[in-house]
Amino acid sequence: MNTYKIIEIKQSVFENNDKQAELLREKLKKDKTFLLNLMSSPGSGKTTTVLRTIEALKDELNIGVLEADIDSDVDASAVSKTGAKVIQLHTGGMCHLDAEMTRQGIEGLGTEELDLVILENVGNLVCPAEFDTGACKNAMILSVPEGDDKPLKYPLMFSIVDVLLINKIDAMGIFDFDIEAVKERAKKLNPNIKVIPISAKTGQGIKEWTDWLRNEVKNWNEN
């Protein structure tokens, strides 16, 4: 008969990733580079929002972008036209990015000269919320056509982000979208969440968003 030995590990599955995320944040602090993790479902306007953000801040900040997708480089090619440094990461079927993949992307970009790196995470409201990428701040986009019930359906995502951008507000008239209900639902999950309604298409609200971002970059890179 075999003798079996039980060996306790008692380790959270995310512990390994959390450690790598901390290491990445330390490196970013040293390099004076601010990493923003931007999450949302597919089609919410992440890339358009990134383009708007670059346009608003490119004269004052050196910006890099990490585009994470399961496949293709359509987003990276759109972003590269702005002149920002961009790297396309393929997750190869994985539905989220972890800290190690993010680190590889950051290394590929080379952060020494960059003030701000925007990580456009895989379009998904579930798994990216579970993994710390090593970002300094987390933001998410909820677009009007997706509906105001999303904080109820994907509570974890809404509870871990620092900023919620409500995009496509120019289309509010067409959809039954209760923006006050979203704010209330999101704040119940996350009292400190900052909610900024925007339209990446018309540019509405982009100033408030980029003011917030500029301020965060400044705080990170100075202290």
Binding site: N2, T3, Y4, K5, I6, I7, E8, I9, K10, Q11, S12, V13, F14
Partner: peptide, 11 residues
Amino acid sequence: REFKIKEIIAC
């Protein structure tokens, strides 16, 4: 909300 590796049984 836990997701933990509790233990392994080794031979």
